[in-house]
Write a protein that binds this DNA or RNA. Structure first.
Lengths: 237, 237
DNA sequence: CCATGATTGTCCGCCACCGTACCCAAAATC
DNA sequence: GATTTTGGGTACGGTGGCGGACAATCATGG
């Protein structure tokens, strides 16, 4: 099947492969549904499959101890996970789980390991994503130390918005609090702030982006740089 | 010159290259002294050279605005910078500067770009480092949100200690405060805490590690995981 | 239709860290 | 040796977010 018509090409990385490499790679892909909460890999877990999303959002969570965890970054159809597998690793430091349900493709780890040395564009593309993702993580680190909760929340919502179709995102305060590493009530109040400015609309289990431009102004310098880096290294989302 | 006797092999990444690739790579290397404060690349700056340290420490700093900056991670002889150049990038999101003076080698960006596609071990090694470094950043992000200053400081000192010879590190409170993204007085008090427990000894412009084991206990889960990831993907520091 | 669980709203005391400012000592410069 | 610069110690009021707890509301299934 030619790339253009293959459903796996909805993933931005796979879509950029040259025809020959895409053929070899797609041969090992298996279509999967990704329900909310699905764990792609556990913290310090053995990697079984490499996942390429076509829709939905995955969260990469750093876990130091049971009660000490926070999101490092998120990815959608523009990326893959676990990143470690992209350079030949077999264990993931991070927990990776589905935050917004979607679809995608996966490939057994062994297949990926065998493909990498033989397919330079494939391995370079994965490496580029790792670099772009790492810049996303570094901004998470910066915001965690310089921004207050509402600003971080704005950034986080913008990043989700980039990765879903439409303006509605299914999210609970509790989940967001886990991701941002703050108390659940802090999320509630921060959401009220954004809602008060008419930037979003929050309902039970669902948040709707009302004014993306305004959200960006609110998030200010916290949002944007990693997205630029992605475009420089790989292309449009 | 064979790898074993080439001074560039003091860099852990270069040392792992097969003889043939090392020859090609080392051909473009130029020895450089790296004084404290030397800027390898500015934030959003055009990359001119790719640096491989043999001694000293470099800091990778995320900059969002003039007053909004914090260290994402640090590297020594176990790595290289700017990471973006390792996948073919020409611009660095991060500012990279020398934190503890040392020596190293550098290569023009064009040479690196030309070498990468032709030398799979080289490019895979750089990609592995990017992945390992990204896990370091993700722990910075986690600590920034879950740990208090003294714990973060302990982690930071341990990471410095890993990368210098001996137990003395030349550091000012002011510089540390910049890296951790906290007030300078917060660093002073946090250092007092560590000093009170006889884990370190602080003098003007210099910190001496007295009890590394104790520091590790103090830093608890904040320290260790990224170092494991490095060993898994690349090897000993 | 009611019970149960999940989700959200709110309150309170507490404390780590902030912003700012000032002083002192050591080191460097002249 | 005097002066300037740099690095370190300390103080104080202010506050964002924490820990914890409880109530209200919505959703779901028996």
């Amino acid at each position: 099947m030619s790339i253009a018509y293959h459903p796996a090409a909805q993933n931005r990385l796979l879509a950029l492969l040259p025809e020959r490499e895409f053929g070899a790679v797609s041969h090992h892909l298996e279509a999967v549904k990704l329900p909310r909460g699905f764990e792609i890999v556990g913290a310090d877990g053995q990697i079984e499959h490499v996942y390429f999303l076509c829709s939905g959002i995955g969260s990469v969570v750093t876990v130091a101890a049971e009660a000490q965890r926070a999101e490092a970054g998120m990815f959608g159809r523009e990326g893959f996970a676990p990143t470690s597998a992209g350079v030949g690793g077999t264990i993931s430091v991070h927990q990776v789980l589905i935050q917004v349900e979607g679809r995608g493709f996966r490939m057994p780890l062994d297949a990926a390991k065998a493909l990498l040395p033989e397919h330079p564009t494939f391995s370079n593309l994965l490496a580029r994503f790792i670099q772009a993702f790492s810049s996303q993580i570094s901004f998470t680190a910066l915001c965690n130390v310089t921004c207050q909760v509402d600003e971080r929340l704005a950034r986080w919502l913008l990043m989700c918005h980039d990765r879903v179709d439409g303006d509605e995102i299914a999210l609970t305060h509790d989940f967001i609090s886990l991701m941002l590493g703050v108390r659940r009530p802090s999320v509630t109040t921060a959401l009220h702030v954004l809602e008060g400015r008419k930037l979003i609309q929050a309902e039970r289990g669902r948040i709707t982006i009302r004014d993306r431009r305004g959200l960006q102004e609110f998030a200010a310098t916290a949002y944007g740089k990693p997205e630029e880096e992605y475009r420089r290294l790989i292309g449009e989302f």
